[in-house]
Write a protein that binds this DNA or RNA. Structure first.
Lengths: 113, 113
DNA sequence: CCCCAGCGTTTCTTTCTGGAACTTTCGTTT
DNA sequence: AAACGAAAGTTCCAGAAAGAAACGCTGGGG
């Protein structure tokens, strides 16, 4: 089986991963949950290259996890907002957040308190 | 930021994804939750190549999500079982499973009763 | 007109992935 | 005893994807 065929896999987990299972998509969703909507906001988030960001956003819009809205017509500007479908993945990210906090403390001797 | 630096990211989601955020790792975990333990079982699961499987298993053991046990000494055989740490990611997969079932129906008129 | 901000696209190089054969270690068959 | 087969990886190479950074386009301001 190739990755590109996962979307027809018998397993619903595999089908979900065919959308969000790559290296950057869940990180984009995290930014969405944090309230980011604009291309430059995602780009500034220190994540992937603009190239990949554009690609992933397009894909997320295609599958209906995000919606691309024109928030400004004069200088055609778009932002990306979560759909209901996209919101439903939030709990999965929340679990990963708790898991990371619990099991993966930052190694750099941080000055947390 | 490069992918390899995510493990020190300020965001716990990013740190979690530095481990499970690649194309195949969550699929391996799914197999674990389904009760698979042996290399050949994972390999037969129609997932990645043996090359990647070996790599991902090694990584999951390194970070303590799986444990590599010798289940047979004579012809040195190993299997991989979930640790408590690994079990704690199960809910995230469960959410993805429900999400996939709800939003990504299989297109081939499947008979999964 | 030139510069700036916002939103991508293009180009080039490096790294990763996919597929299959190969290795190693025993246990079994002939 | 040599061949065979299973389990668990490793190695090799071509092709796909990712990374870096500059370029393109649109409209506003000075």
């Amino acid at each position: 089986m190739k990755w590109s065929e996962l979307n027809d896999n018998w397993c619903p987990v595999a089908r979900t991963l065919s959308i969000v299972g790559d290296r950057w998509t869940l990180l984009i969703l995290r930014d969405c949950y944090l309230g980011k909507t604009k291309f430059e906001e995602f780009a500034a988030s220190g994540g992937m290259t603009r190239h990949l960001l554009a690609d992933r956003l397009k894909r997320l819009v295609e599958v209906g996890v995000l919606e691309r809205r024109a928030y400004c017509t004069a200088p055609k500007r778009f932002d990306y907002v979560l759909t209901a479908k996209g919101e439903e993945l939030r709990p999965a990210l929340a679990i990963m957040k708790e898991w990371g906090k619990k099991h993966l403390p930052v190694r750099r001797t941080a000055v947390e308190g």
